[in-house]
Computed example of a mutant assay.
Amino acid sequence: MNAVAIGPFAFSGDRFSVIAGLIVFMLVGSLLAARVDNRLGTFTTAAALLGIAGARAGHVLVHAESFLQEPLRVLAIWQGGFSPTGGLLGVLLAAVLLWRKAPKATPWAILPLAAGFFVWVVVTTLTDSGTAPRAPGTSYAVLARDETLAIADRKGRPAVLNLWASWCPPCRREMPMMAEIATSNPEVDFLFANQGESRAVIGAYLRQTGVDLETILVDPFSDLSRHYGAIGLPATLFINPDGTLAATHLGEISRETIAERLAAFPSEDRKQTE
């Protein structure tokens, strides 16, 4: 899993590269504002804000039906969900505003944009961990069932593997939603692998919350986190029927992201399981 840890904070590789690029973009803009035209500083601030707002708005519009049911989730940007097209439109709007107020300074706006893009590319390359690990052959006990399960031995079905713990607030927030989606998608195996806790602790949490999960794997030594390189919780992994890793998501996940990832599974594989 491509991820970066800074102290107690963990970032997925794609988010960290965007943050790094944005920071450099703002810094270069501030330097140009001091040396060339102070309106370049205003441009970088406006471009950052409009870009983020546009990217989020674009994502929300694409998934309008889902967000209408829970409008406050529009503000849950920590779950991810941004449209590159919407973000680009926001930056272009900031550039147009700069051109109208300071046409001579507008060409200088290319420098912070180029610097931010360059850093994004470099950090993306550096955080790419290369070939993703295949599903492990280790068997894990299934809670509430007298059996074990090895992720690599599943019968050719796509799977969503969620790594979680009861002490993790984002895990607790997303779990009811994930349980609902799991029920609605019987053609996909949803596996909830608890990391580092005992059967007693897991059972107490489930009784307290009333969350109904069909397949809970007991991983008391967090082997799956090490196998997939998950440096934080929750982590959600989308696994192809052949055991290869299709996609990963570090941190709390949204309903829309899961829907997009499920739709990306090969349709013929999903039909075979129905």
Rank of each mutant, 00 (worst) to 15 (best):
A235F: 06
E256Y: 08
G243Y: 13
T183Q: 13
L111M: 14
R226N: 07
S66F: 01
R73P: 04
I253C: 11
G251Q: 10
I216Q: 06
I181G: 08
A46L: 13
R56P: 01
L72M: 06
A95S: 07
F238D: 00
G80M: 00
I239L: 13
G21F: 11
L50A: 12
T127F: 03
I258Y: 09
L161E: 10
P176E: 06
M175C: 09
F238V: 00
I181E: 13
L68R: 09
T183D: 12
P186F: 03
T257H: 10
D146Y: 01
L163I: 10
P266V: 10
V160I: 13
V60Y: 02
A76W: 12
P136E: 13
G210R: 03
A33G: 08
V160D: 04
C171T: 09
A109P: 01
T148Q: 15
R207G: 15
W167Q: 08
S222K: 14
K101R: 15
E197V: 06
M178A: 09
P107L: 02
T209W: 05
F25K: 06
A48L: 14
T45F: 11
K155E: 15
T244P: 03
L31N: 08
A102E: 03
A20I: 00
S184C: 01
R100L: 12
A150Y: 09
F265N: 00
L163Y: 10
S254I: 06
R270E: 05
L224D: 07
L49V: 15
P71W: 07
V60Q: 01
M177V: 08
K104F: 03
A259K: 14
S17P: 08
E256W: 10
E180H: 09
G58F: 03
E274P: 02
L161I: 07
V18E: 12
L40P: 05
L31C: 11
E147K: 11
I151Y: 04
L50C: 08
I181S: 08
D146C: 01
M178G: 07
K101G: 03
V96T: 07
L50W: 14
G54T: 13
L161R: 03
H63P: 01
A20H: 01
E260V: 11
P84A: 03
R261Y: 06
A182L: 05
L22R: 01
Y140S: 01
C168P: 15
V201Y: 06
Q272A: 14
N2S: 15
A53L: 14
Q208N: 14
R207I: 05
I52L: 15
A152C: 11
G156V: 04
L111W: 12
A200C: 00
S166E: 11
T248P: 04
F82D: 07
A132S: 14
A33H: 02
P107A: 02
S129K: 13
L88G: 01
